[in-house]
Design a protein around this nucleic acid. Structure first.
Lengths: 238, 238
DNA sequence: GAGTGGTCTAGACCACTTG
DNA sequence: AAGTGGTCTAGACCACTCC
């Protein structure tokens, strides 16, 4: 029942087993998993050991415990992998709509190559899009991806590209695990202003983001601009 | 022995008691604290309960466990508790200097009371300070703390207040475990501008931060302003 | 009232560090 | 060998949710 390396503690192997069963889809997102006592019986360990394994799954964000009710698989992975990294606007703001203006394969400029850690003369996918909420343009985004991996994205139907991170994950097997963002304030240039519908010269927020997979390899680099006046950015750090 | 609210779980009260004894200096930084079995006997709880309390102290960074050797009070680890929540400026920028302009005990206004989750007419400590790097004013900060706990801070020597989070931790036993920040762009008012040395009416970054302990109770609320032009904010999310 | 997760016990045994 | 923290047990009782 507990497959992995027997030198590891039981709670650790139990955690691995449960995580794998969740990943395999044995329990759907939102569904409840067996109770603590059932798991203890099934794996032939004590309830304390089960609880310890569950503690880890909970802090990893894979499951959610509700006192008196049960334990549930969190819908995190895809719903999360998108909003987890979309911080603009409060938690109560509506989900922004994506409006892709162009997608092309172009040679990487020096800056993009550096952020994607690409060497030599390589191509990248360049996506330009706007993000709107309630018909207001929140952001204007330039997104760059290594063409070696992501080239097919320029031929996918736009309807499948409303959310990008799930596409990276499902279609290309690239999971964004971490992201580093850098915010600064700039003055608007002509093109950006037109997209955002603000006067030329008004203050803009610039958000640079490097998205990395679990091993720290760059997956995506993007630069987003938003009108400073309608901008809020929320983050919880721990 | 376990002073705080008896409705709280024992491991929680035990953690509080130990944190307070550390804060009071009963065990110096680097010194070992009593073993698990000694603590269990002294507090008349089981070893499992002691371990649970210690788990929290360890993740809070107050103590360090060494298998087979003992448990040690961690020496002041700046890096952790201070810069963990100081995001303004790149990682390469110099450490900012704190210049406290005033510290007073005042009645909490409605807004401050709400963020600190205080009820009724209670006092708070209000600290105003600037943070400078290379003689440039980066931030102007208003900081509010519950006076019930933090009142003594207004009489501490300024030299001990260059970094606040370590003071909360060592002197008052309050560990900032999480923080929620909200950034927005505003236009400067008169007073703020003078502190920051920018023209009235120029764009400012406003950063609101709620700092919470591990159980989610508010420890501090602060509002920081910085000149938009010299502002960058870095964050890594995972 | 039945079932769930949350707290707590009073040990046992193991792995590790130090004399 | 003695003492420490790390793992694990087999329960007990409480607090909560749902029927």
């Amino acid at each position: 029942m507990l497959a992995t390396d027997a030198r590891l503690p039981r709670y650790h192997r139990l955690r691995d087993s449960l995580a794998q069963r969740i990943a395999a889809g044995e329990w759907q997102a939102g569904a409840s998993i067996p109770s603590e006592s059932e798991l203890a019986a099934a794996y032939d360990v004590s309830i304390g050991t089960v609880r310890r394994a569950i503690d880890i799954l909970e802090t990893d964000g894979l499951i959610e415990r509700v006192h008196g009710r049960g334990m549930y698989v969190r819908r995190a992975n895809f719903g999360g992998s998108l909003f987890r990294f979309f911080r603009v606007g409060g938690s109560d703001s509506p989900e922004p709509v994506s409006d892709i203006k162009s997608r092309r394969i172009v040679p990487a400029c020096a800056q993009v190559a550096r952020h994607l850690k690409l060497r030599g003369n390589v191509d990248v996918v360049h996506i330009v899009r706007r993000r709107l909420a309630d018909d207001i343009v929140l952001l204007r985004e330039d997104i760059w991806l290594p063409a070696r991996i992501f080239a097919p994205i320029v031929d996918m139907p736009l309807s499948e590209l409303s959310l990008l991170y799930p596409v990276y994950e499902k279609r290309f097997g690239k999971v964004v695990a971490r992201a580093r963002e850098r915010l600064s304030i700039e003055t608007a240039d002509e093109v950006i202003c037109r997209d955002l519908g603000v006067e030329s010269g008004s203050p803009l927020v610039r958000i640079e983001r490097s998205a990395l997979n679990h091993s720290g390899e760059p997956i995506e680099w993007r630069v987003s601009f938003g009108a400073a006046g309608r901008f809020t950015y929320e983050i919880e750090v721990s």
